[in-house]
Computed example of a mutant assay.
Amino acid sequence: MVTALNWIGIFPFTLYDTDWVGKEIYGGQAMGTPEQINLYHDGVRAGAFGLMFYVAVMGFISLFLELFIRLLGNVSRLWSVCNFIVAICMGMTVVISSMAENARDANGNALVHPPTEVKASCFALFAVLGIPQAVTYSIPFALASIYSKDGTTGQGLALGLLNLAIVIPQIIVTLISGPLDALFDGSNLPAFIWGGIAAAIGGIAAFKLPPAESHSNMQI
């Protein structure tokens, strides 16, 4: 369940991150005037640049997961904390979008790039999201192996069920987030908020997981 909630939390942003930057942050439109389209494309490129920070942080954090596990006491606590980070970041998309909108209003809705502080906030959000993503790509699989190692079902079945807990939420998000965005005039924020709520619930659920055996000796 925690894995499913985790992916419901992060997958809307994975789907629409560059689109969010193009529309909500840069104020462009994928289908509009030439100026709006150019601004949208600039935003998409900026979002792709933000993904570089996202991946760099994810790779860096993955090197220190064992240290974080030791500091927090067990794997479940780390997973819980990272779910809450996702929830906070999804909430911050609303704040950053509001900052960008206020900046456009101050400029008389001119089709110009957002100010530096808005861009910096956007890139910082991408970077911070790399932290929970490093956990998402490793900890659930490690926990599934640990919890099933002494069971009769075996690790193969456990990992297969874990993959279903990843794929099914992705399908659900894909089917729902598009119509949800259309309902709110193409805004990505409703899907992000929905994801943030799911991530927060996942954080609570992860905190209540029983401690994994031999977590202090686990190599990620």
Results as ranks from 00 to 15, higher is better:
191 A>Y: 01
200 A>P: 06
211 P>E: 12
170 Q>K: 08
214 S>Y: 11
105 D>M: 03
139 I>R: 08
24 E>A: 03
84 F>D: 09
26 Y>A: 12
209 L>D: 12
208 K>R: 11
114 P>H: 08
78 L>K: 08
142 A>V: 14
152 T>S: 15
196 G>R: 04
50 G>R: 02
25 I>Q: 02
136 T>M: 15
125 L>Y: 01
63 L>C: 00
175 L>K: 00
210 P>W: 10
27 G>M: 04
209 L>K: 12
161 L>M: 15
116 T>G: 09
95 V>P: 03
202 G>R: 00
135 V>L: 05
67 L>F: 09
196 G>A: 05
100 A>E: 04
22 G>Q: 05
54 Y>G: 03
90 M>W: 08
126 F>S: 07
43 G>P: 09
105 D>F: 03
138 S>R: 11
147 Y>Q: 15
136 T>H: 14
153 T>Y: 13
195 G>V: 00
169 P>N: 06
164 L>T: 15
206 A>W: 06
166 I>C: 04
10 I>P: 04
116 T>C: 07
219 Q>L: 14
208 K>L: 15
176 I>H: 03
185 D>S: 09
185 D>R: 07
190 P>I: 01
46 A>G: 04
98 S>K: 06
130 G>S: 07
59 G>D: 06
173 V>T: 10
13 F>H: 06
216 S>T: 02
210 P>C: 05
147 Y>H: 14
205 A>W: 12
214 S>N: 15
108 G>D: 09
153 T>Q: 14
151 G>A: 14
134 A>D: 01
37 I>Y: 10
120 A>D: 07
40 Y>I: 00
35 E>H: 05
106 A>F: 02
182 A>R: 07
150 D>Y: 12
78 L>R: 12
61 I>E: 01
35 E>I: 13
121 S>P: 09
157 L>H: 14
157 L>K: 14
56 A>S: 01
56 A>R: 03
212 A>Y: 11
147 Y>E: 15
66 E>H: 06
102 N>E: 06
15 L>A: 02
168 I>F: 09
179 P>E: 04
166 I>T: 12
61 I>S: 07
17 D>W: 10
42 D>Q: 07
163 N>V: 10
105 D>N: 04
76 S>E: 15
108 G>E: 01
